[in-house]
Design a protein around this nucleic acid. Sequence first.
DNA 1: TGGACGATCCCCT
DNA 2: GGGGATCGTCCAT
Length: 203
Amino acid sequence: MSATYRKLPRSFYLHPPLRVARDLLGTYLVRRVGTIRLVGKIVEVEAYDESDPASHSYRGRTRRNNVMFWKGGHLYVYFTYGMHFCANVVTGLEGRGEAVLIRAVEPIDGLDVMRRNRSREKKSAPPVNKNLTNGPAKLCEAFGIGREENGTDLLGEEIYITQGEEIPDSKIARSTRIGIRNGREKRWRFYVKGNGWVSKPWL
DNA sequence: TGGACGATCCCCT
DNA sequence: GGGGATCGTCCAT
């Protein structure tokens, strides 16, 4: 791969979640399973930290949220609503309880496998069905991310993030976060303006 | 030990 | 636009 697509170094993740959230927009999430390579451009994210009543880490470290307290650059995957998984990028130093939820990606490579993984998806409108990856649980299903991927080191070979497209500030929108009660006033959601895979472009 | 609820999605009306 | 699916986690009893 060219220099443009270099894997993000550990140092990228060792910053507060608001900064990492913004910087993640335009980067490429990569999943490798054998010879298969799935790639999606990150277009929507949300930040969470330990002082934040909406965060899983708010009430301290537990078995469920343990990975959130690891050092930046790991994947925190949680199970919710009895049937869905969501993936977060852990940020900051060891012990801080910070993460960035990946809410949407634009499919770049491996779309046939993503469609197969999203088996419940019935209608497929050409050229690409945005329904494939325009939500946090949808993209996990498309990328085959579940319980077993919790704690994955993003500097490894299985799941990682590379540099991608530079998104200028003028193309970044900011809003309150989706689907939470406590801490709903915080505008800690970031997304790429006009991108067709953003989950709720009107918010 | 039990019950309420959740960083969601999909189908039905 | 609304509700059901479905279960791990947390907190109150």
